[in-house]
Amino acid sequence: MNKFEELEDVAYQDGVDVLNYRFESNNIKGLYCDGVVAIREDMTIPEKTCALAEELGHHETSVGNILDMTSAANRKQERQARFWAYNKQIGLFGLVRAFEHGCQNRFEIAEYLEVTEEFLEECIECYRNKYGICKQVDNYLIYFIPQLAIMKLV
């Protein structure tokens, strides 16, 4: 079972319907409203996985119509939904698992975690803003500045 199918199971267990949809605009990857997620049908599986994760993040964290991004409250809810998605699909432990798996660069990490490189980059930026230079996870140090690096502590 791939990550997209796992997320579909999470949605099903939460009572969220997931539909493939042909959006008129190429700018829309997914939308969430009242227990239904619509995912753009002509994307790759990693793209669908990232979009579904974010829309499930909205299911878990957002309230009301947040389409108007001129509102600071709506932007905050959007950020919370994305942070939920980053933690669900990647997380600090996911970065450590990728390191332990032998991933050498961002492409390999994204492929191993079954996310897009763009989603991984946004996640790392989010973690950089939250944790600063580095974050210790068990016996690993994850550096976010100047670039992503993981080091096992002895």
Rank of each mutant, 00 (worst) to 15 (best):
83 F>C: 00
144 F>D: 03
67 L>A: 15
7 L>M: 09
109 I>G: 02
139 N>G: 10
145 I>N: 10
106 R>V: 08
75 R>D: 01
147 Q>H: 13
16 V>N: 02
23 F>W: 12
86 Y>Q: 02
90 I>D: 09
63 V>H: 04
109 I>M: 06
28 I>L: 12
32 Y>G: 09
83 F>T: 09
114 E>N: 12
1 M>V: 12
117 E>S: 05
77 Q>P: 08
69 M>T: 13
44 T>F: 03
122 E>D: 08
100 E>I: 03
93 F>S: 15
153 L>D: 04
80 Q>M: 14
66 I>E: 06
15 G>A: 07
57 G>F: 02
108 E>W: 06
129 N>H: 10
153 L>Q: 07
112 Y>G: 04
150 I>E: 00
105 N>E: 02
22 R>C: 10
86 Y>E: 04
77 Q>E: 06
104 Q>T: 07
148 L>F: 02
87 N>L: 04
130 K>H: 11
83 F>G: 01
131 Y>C: 01
104 Q>G: 09
3 K>I: 14
47 E>Y: 02
115 V>T: 07
146 P>F: 11
143 Y>H: 13
82 R>S: 11
29 K>I: 09
80 Q>T: 10
123 C>P: 01
28 I>D: 10
28 I>K: 09
54 E>A: 03
63 V>R: 05
107 F>S: 11
12 Y>F: 14
104 Q>C: 06
39 I>M: 03
21 Y>P: 00
88 K>M: 15
84 W>G: 04
20 N>I: 07
126 C>Y: 14
149 A>Y: 14
4 F>A: 02
134 C>W: 08
56 L>C: 04
135 K>S: 07
102 G>Y: 04
51 A>M: 02
110 A>Q: 03
29 K>A: 10
96 V>R: 02
9 D>C: 09
4 F>K: 00
38 A>L: 15
4 F>V: 01
92 L>D: 15
149 A>M: 14
81 A>F: 00
37 V>E: 07
117 E>M: 05
132 G>I: 01
136 Q>I: 08
92 L>H: 08
26 N>E: 13
111 E>Q: 10
15 G>Q: 06
